[in-house]
Write a protein that binds this DNA or RNA. Structure first.
Length: 290
DNA sequence: TCAGACCCTCACAG
DNA sequence: ACTGTGAGGGTCT
């Protein structure tokens, strides 16, 4: 067993923490004094970019850091993924804006719950709701002395035992019944989130779609951000805008036509491509109407 | 196939 | 300051 310590140097090239942690994949990160503070499972952790590395700090000594390396996906060779993208102007512009935008590998339940809460919400609002859920239903975690309290994301069993009113108290509005019913289905093992890991993409998606509040977009988010199905391609309003503006500026293709386009055009790492397009639109497309 | 409803909060006008 | 208005990483009917 390795010696337990509170700091780890993770050698990695081309990893943009800021872009990755604010890209709408995960909702538990804050930028404080030049570093990123967040919660992964039951760990409070602080991250900082260094030359060709990420420096990680925890509140209590850790001997096995697998949870962090798996979450960050720092072993992924991003350059080979970037070079698998289609060679066109939109992708060139998107990648040029920010190399080192990564996909995280999150816990399926937390990811699922977060994205049920995401529908017609802005990212800051999702962060607020997830934070409230943690503070009301999560478990307090160790932090550095004097640090404000932080909480783990409450497990499905805990949410399943809550009432709709309690959940609405976390400002999630009409999403509350969806979260509650989904949590109950998972608590009863009507849907087995672990078993989904070993399914094929299509079957995995079918399973997720059984959950209330999970449609195609959110299912694809979970497939991509939690299970690592890199062919999953979530299409939200931003990506839809990107497709229309960047790929079909003259025509007015129907949504179905665009979806068919995404199924083949972006190749084996379509999920990464989608994330770069999303980022591009968030930077450039704010006031542009699609 | 397709609007509308759905809770609530924040940004932005005026 | 204060109220009015619109829209926000969708889903369901």
């Amino acid at each position: 067993m390795e010696k337990a310590r509170t700091e780890l140097l993770i050698p990695v090239r081309c990893y943009d923490l800021a872009a990755t942690l604010t890209s709408g994949q995960a909702f538990r990160w804050r930028f404080v004094d030049g570093r990123w503070e967040g919660i992964i499972g039951e760990h409070w952790v602080r991250l900082k970019n260094a030359p060709d590395a990420i420096v990680a700090q925890t509140a209590i000594p850790v001997s096995n850091w697998h949870w962090l390396l798996d979450y960050l996906q720092s072993d992924v060779e991003i350059e080979s993924i970037l070079s698998s993208f289609p060679v066109d102007e939109p992708m060139r512009a998107s990648v040029g804006l920010c190399r080192g935008l990564r996909l995280l590998r999150q816990d399926p339940w937390e990811c699922l719950a977060s994205f049920i809460l995401s529908s017609t919400k802005q990212i800051v609002q999702i962060q607020q709701i997830v934070g409230l859920l943690g503070s009301r239903f999560g478990k307090p975690l160790e932090t550095p002395p004097g640090h404000e309290p932080v909480y783990s994301f409450p497990p499905a069993d805990t949410i399943a035992a809550a009432t709709e009113q309690e959940l609405r108290g976390c400002k999630m509005g009409f999403r509350a019944p969806n979260l509650l019913r989904s949590a109950r289905m998972i608590a009863r093992r009507e849907v087995d989130l672990e078993a989904i890991r070993s399914l094929e993409l299509g079957k995995a998606r079918e399973e997720l779609l059984r959950l209330p509040g999970v449609g195609n977009k959110i299912a694809n988010c979970i497939l991509l951000f939690a299970y690592g199905f890199q062919g999953a391609f979530p299409v939200d309003v931003w990506v839809m805008k990107a497709l229309r503006q960047l790929y079909f500026p003259k025509r007015r293709p129907k949504a179905e036509r665009l979806l068919r386009f995404t199924n083949t055009y972006f190749g084996p790492n379509a999920g990464y491509a989608q994330q770069y397009l999303f980022h591009y639109m968030r930077v450039h497309g704010r006031q542009a109407k699609g």
